[in-house]
Simulated assay, not measured.
Amino acid sequence: MAITRSIAQINDRIRAGTVRVMTAAEIKAALKSADVEAVAAEVDVITAGTFEPMESSGAILNLGHTDPPIRLARATLNGVEAYCGFGAVDLYLGAAQPGESLDYGGGHVIADLVAERTVRLRATGWPADCYPRRDFESLIRLDTINQAYLFNPRNVYQNFIVGVNGGDRPLHTYLGTLQPRLGNAVYACPGALSPLLNDPLLRSVGIGTRIFLGGGTGYIAWEGTQHFPLQKRLPNGTPVGPAATLALIGDLKQMDPAWVRGCRFYQYGPSLMLGVGIPLPVFDVAVVAAAGIDDSEIVAPVIDFAIPRRVRPTFGLVSYAQLKSGQITIAGQKVRTAPLASLALSQQVAQTLKQWIAAGRFLLTEPVAALPEERPLLAQEQQLLR
């Protein structure tokens, strides 16, 4: 008999304490000894997680009004500039915004706030009759400001690239330092652990899906920037390069510093290490079949960063099983590999979300709209006025 479940039915089981939850890693292990129908009959929710740098992240902060009031024109937090142009005392702090050096930036400030550390605010104002104050300086904490929430334009890439350097000097990139003459290869996606690779056709997620975000509860707010579901795909549905992305939102005041950490890439700049977990409701057998995908069945393109162009040369595709083995072969040369994502902590995110659901702390939500299935990926060409 075909297995069909609704989110309402699954939530009833969560409330009753009878829900059956498995992580993506556990699903893959179970499928080695049982067929997909048997496994699907024994699981209601699959949890998948990642913990990796996500520089297209940021925080919206409302500071509260000063006396006399100020309309912010420029503001820094621990020396990191925040954007002020959308409200008198509202700020947007980008995770990749550098401070006085490339070693500390917006991601570090966000992590400091979540860890309940004090942050120095310096601000100047645009004077107006209703906002006469010209400057303001104070120490703030997460509990001394109003709203503070992550609003991340692009997170949780569905697959990504592998970076190498075929040139003669080290390159400092968003993947970290790439050593010359194919000295190393760096990959960002955690492969078969990655949430959206366990749901390659985006059947289980959509706008409004409740997720684990930074140790608290968040939501999928929209498609992410550079969302590209039209990426070429293997017969198993997984993309051969960067594809779908998610815009995420969640309350910083609920988050845990273990899952929100500032980081920096040497001679490139700051970023934010972020834990994201996504529940995949098991509507039917196809959900389990998709989540059974193995690292040997997912590939990523090897890109040469030595060519400073938008379209760079590729050394072909490699599987995540090859990447996770510690080395790949490029043009007959053995090249050591390393992940940017923490594979161990990615599994811990999935395990934590599993525990929340099993304990009745986390209910699933019905998406209010599907993520787009067709979006071109446009490039920017220079247009000059004549």
Rank of each mutant, 00 (worst) to 15 (best):
A244K: 00
L234P: 01
R264L: 11
A247L: 11
I249P: 00
Y268W: 14
S271A: 15
S271F: 04
G206C: 15
L248V: 14
V260G: 02
L213W: 08
P281E: 06
A243P: 00
I211V: 14
S194N: 14
L202V: 03
Q267P: 04
P279L: 09
R261M: 07
N236T: 13
A221T: 11
R233T: 15
G241N: 08
R233M: 10
H227F: 05
G218P: 02
G275S: 12
L230I: 01
E223M: 12
V276Y: 02
C263W: 12
V205S: 04
G214R: 05
R210A: 12
I249C: 08
L230Q: 15
A247H: 06
G215K: 03
L213A: 06
A221Q: 13
R233P: 06
G206M: 13
R233V: 07
G262K: 07
G208M: 08
G208Q: 10
Y268D: 02
G237I: 05
G250Q: 10
P235L: 12
G237H: 13
V260K: 10
G241K: 01
R264V: 05
Y219H: 09
R203Y: 02
L280S: 00
P229D: 03
I220N: 02
A244P: 01
L197A: 03
W222Y: 15
D251G: 06
G214L: 14
P239S: 08
G250R: 07
L193I: 06
L201K: 13
G218M: 09
P235R: 12
L202K: 03
I207Q: 10
G277K: 02
P242R: 12
I278S: 01
P279D: 02
D199Y: 10
T238W: 06
D251R: 07
G250N: 07
R233H: 08
G237Q: 09
P239G: 05
L234N: 09
D199P: 07
G215P: 06
L252Y: 15
I278H: 02
Q231C: 08
I207R: 13
L201D: 15
P242G: 06
G216P: 00
Y219C: 06
P257F: 15
G206S: 12
S204E: 05
T217F: 09
G215I: 07
Q267T: 00
I278T: 00
L246R: 10
K232T: 03
L193P: 02
G206P: 12
P281C: 15
F265P: 01
L248P: 00
G269K: 05
G277N: 04
V205G: 01
L272C: 03
P270Q: 11
I211K: 00
A221I: 04
R264I: 04
F265W: 11
Q231E: 12
T209Y: 11
G206N: 11
I207P: 00
Q267D: 15
L230A: 11
P242Q: 12
T245S: 15
G208F: 08
Q267W: 08
G277P: 04
G224I: 03
T217L: 10
R210Y: 08
P279W: 04
G241L: 08
R264H: 15
I249R: 13
A247R: 07
R203Q: 14
R233I: 08
Q254N: 09
V276L: 07
